Amino acid sequence: MNHKEIIQKYKATPTFYGVIQIKNKQSGKTFIDVVPNIHNRWGYYQTNLNGNFYHNTDLQQDWNRLGADAFSYSVLWKKDTAGIDNLRQTLKELKQTWLAKCQPEYH
């Protein structure tokens, strides 16, 4: 497959936005977030947490103390972005709904 075909294939791949959860397997504490593209999102969080520059200080402190193996990652809900006019607003509303529903310990 040449470079042009790879780019076309990437552009044709559907993008899914969704709700993710990072769970501390030892304490049961959870972190909930909404993301515009769930593809490779776990890698994004791991990079930030391993680099010690994640904005959620409680989650960061537990990550530093317990290590990556103490946490799990899951996608709680996802939907194709096709047909979404205002993804930013959709994500904002989705986050409020899921935070109220799950009441995570990490904020």
Rank of each mutant, 00 (worst) to 15 (best):
Q8C: 11
G67E: 03
V19W: 10
I20F: 03
Q8A: 15
V34Q: 02
L66V: 05
W63E: 01
N64T: 11
G28Y: 03
L76H: 10
I20D: 00
I20Y: 09
F16Y: 15
K11L: 15
T47S: 10
G18I: 01
H55F: 11
N50F: 05
N56P: 00
D62T: 06
A70L: 03
T47Y: 00
Y10P: 01
V35N: 06
I32V: 08
K29V: 02
K78I: 00
K29C: 01
G67D: 03
I38T: 10
V35L: 08
D33W: 00
I7E: 15
A12V: 11
N48L: 14
A70R: 04
W63H: 01
K11C: 13
N50G: 10
P14S: 11
V75M: 10
V19R: 13
S74I: 00
Q61W: 04
K25N: 15
Y54E: 07
R41T: 06
R41K: 10
G18H: 06
W77I: 10
K25H: 01
S27N: 02
A12P: 02
Q8M: 13
F16D: 00
K9L: 12
Y10F: 09
D80Y: 00
N24A: 07
F31H: 10
D62R: 07
L59I: 01
Y17R: 14
F31Q: 01
Y73P: 06
G18Y: 04
H39R: 03
K79D: 12
T13V: 07
Q61S: 13
T57K: 09
Q46C: 14
D80C: 08
H39N: 02
Q61H: 12
Y54P: 03
N24M: 05
W77R: 15
N56T: 15
G28A: 04
P36S: 12
Y10I: 14
G67M: 08
R41S: 10
W42F: 12
